Simulated scan of single mutants.
Amino acid sequence: MIIETKRLLLRHFAKSDAKEAHGLFCDEEAMRMVGMYPPFTRFEETEERINKWVNAKRYLAIVLKEIGSLIGYIVINPDSEEFREDTREMGFALISKYRGQGYMKEAVNAVLKELARNNISYVWACCFKENIVSEELIRSIGFEFQQEGIFDSPNDRKYKSLEFRMKL
């Protein structure tokens, strides 16, 4: 899958993305906010994760077209609650220095349009309760709050989460 916007290219990960992705996976704040804490300290950890993501095909690299650099990712998962074929769950992260410039909103909106074209009816987006920036982004795109939940991070702790849903 390749999705292009005015400023971004969203595509499946390639093994060659590990070098640029390492900056994201070493970002303590970003990794805590997506439940992948502690951040990586060794490049080999990033290579291993990217190799898994290359094969999974659920992960889209967000590439800034102007400079050709990977700046984050979006993951599109199957519905983990009701196992509906017309429902997906979305997660995302962005390298710190690219936050606050509208890139993630642009990327998420493009992915939502693509999902709608592929007969997906509902999309869930969740964030940790303490992640106010992601909550604001999710709400601004048009997701509606559904409930609070708990995310049990295997490496860190339990997080209170906010769960949002959008009808496409």
Rank of each mutant, 00 (worst) to 15 (best):
I2N: 10
I2K: 07
I2P: 00
E4Y: 00
T5A: 02
T5M: 02
R7A: 11
R7D: 15
L8Q: 06
L8E: 12
L9E: 15
L9T: 07
R11A: 09
R11I: 10
H12Y: 13
H12C: 09
H12M: 06
F13S: 06
F13R: 04
A14Y: 10
A14N: 13
K15C: 04
K15G: 09
K15A: 14
S16G: 02
D17Q: 04
A18Y: 07
E20M: 13
A21D: 11
H22Y: 11
H22T: 13
H22A: 11
G23Q: 14
L24M: 11
L24Y: 07
L24T: 09
L24W: 03
F25N: 14
F25L: 13
E28K: 11
E28A: 12
E29W: 00
E29Q: 11
A30M: 08
A30K: 03
M31A: 03
M31T: 06
M31H: 00
R32A: 05
R32P: 03
R32W: 04
R32I: 05
M33K: 07
M33C: 08
M33A: 05
V34S: 08
V34C: 09
Y37P: 03
Y37M: 07
Y37T: 08
P38S: 09
P38V: 08
R42G: 07
R42Q: 15
F43V: 09
E44Q: 13
E44Y: 01
E45D: 14
E47G: 00
E47H: 01
E48D: 14
R49G: 01
N51E: 15
N51C: 12
W53V: 01
V54S: 09
V54H: 08
V54K: 09
N55S: 14
N55L: 14
A56T: 12
A56C: 12
K57S: 13
R58G: 04
L60P: 00
L60M: 05
L60G: 00
I62M: 06
I62F: 01
I62C: 05
V63F: 08
K65N: 10
K65S: 05
K65Y: 10
E66D: 13
I67Y: 02
G68Y: 01
G68H: 06
G68T: 10
G68W: 03
S69M: 13
S69Y: 07
S69D: 13
L70A: 08
L70T: 03
L70H: 12
G72I: 09
Y73W: 14
I74Y: 04
I76D: 12
I76T: 13
N77V: 03
P78N: 15
D79K: 06
D79M: 03
S80L: 06
S80H: 08
S80V: 00
E81M: 01
E81A: 01
E81Y: 02
E82W: 00
F83T: 10
F83I: 06
R84W: 12
R84F: 12
E85Y: 00
E85R: 05
D86K: 02
T87R: 14
T87V: 13
T87Y: 11
T87I: 06
R88C: 11
R88D: 11
R88P: 01
R88K: 15
R88M: 11
M90H: 01
G91C: 01
G91T: 04
G91K: 05
F92T: 06
A93S: 15
A93D: 13
A93C: 07
A93I: 07
L94E: 10
I95H: 09
